[in-house]
Amino acid sequence: MSIINVPPTKTKQLEMKRDLATAMEGYTLLEQKREILVMELMHLLDRVKLVQREVDERRARAYATLRRAVSYNGYHLMRRVAEGIEYEHHVEAHVRIAAGVRIPSLETHHGSFSSQYGLIGTDSLVDQTMADYLALLEALGHLAELESAVWLLARELKKTQRHVNALEHIFIPNYRDTLRFIGQALESKELESFNTMKTVKKRLERANADGGDDDGDGTAQGADA
């Protein structure tokens, strides 16, 4: 609990009241944003699990097939075949905005296939390798989309969390304390001035009550002087 160092004046009090209202409004908004982000992430979590499992399975299969293919055909032949393979992959990216975060969504198409080398002299394992890797690539496309979405959302969530915490635990309590302090200071000042006024009034009244006397005294004093 600390108090911001400001002069305890009426103007400042009004100013700070306005600021506090803005802060409260911002806090509500940020809190909502945080909830949306958490929901988005939890929503993604299910898909991540699914896609991750798919990638793991397909990767295990593709890597195993490749190892077998290499051991049957020899590394150099595989290399030569691989050099000639060309696919026209197309990936389209669209950007979706959720809670102020730009989330990419990717669409992958596997285009036409062409090989410089004939497939004569290679066995079915080579074909299988290609098929398995294509399947893996498709799953990886989904993973890439999810991965970037998760990273971005997670970062945004952390940032929002920090803002919410700062507002909730530092900014708003500080302002409340300071406002209370200003309120007290103003009140005591008012009391003080009220007392002063009262004293002045009392003195004036007394002065008025024995007005002639006072005047007489004054002239007498003046005459004396």
């Binding site: 958490v38 992430l41 939890m42 993604l44 979590l45 991540v48 699990k49 991750q52 990767r59 890597y63 490749l66 190892r67 990216a93 990419p104 990717l106 990886l140 993973l143 890439a144 989309e145 999810l146 991965e147 970037s148 998760v150 990273w151 959302l153 997670a154 970062r155 969530l157 952390k158 969390q161």
Partner: peptide
């Protein structure tokens, strides 16, 4: 773009990697 994805080496996992699920868990808290 390009959007980055990590794949395992053909020699198997290197271990001690933070998975996406863990990343989400950490962020959500």
């Amino acid at each position: 773009p390009p959007y980055v994805t990590i794949v395992q080496d053909i020699w198997g996992p290197r271990g001690n990697r933070r998975s996406l699920q863990e990343l989400i868990g950490e962020a959500v808290g």
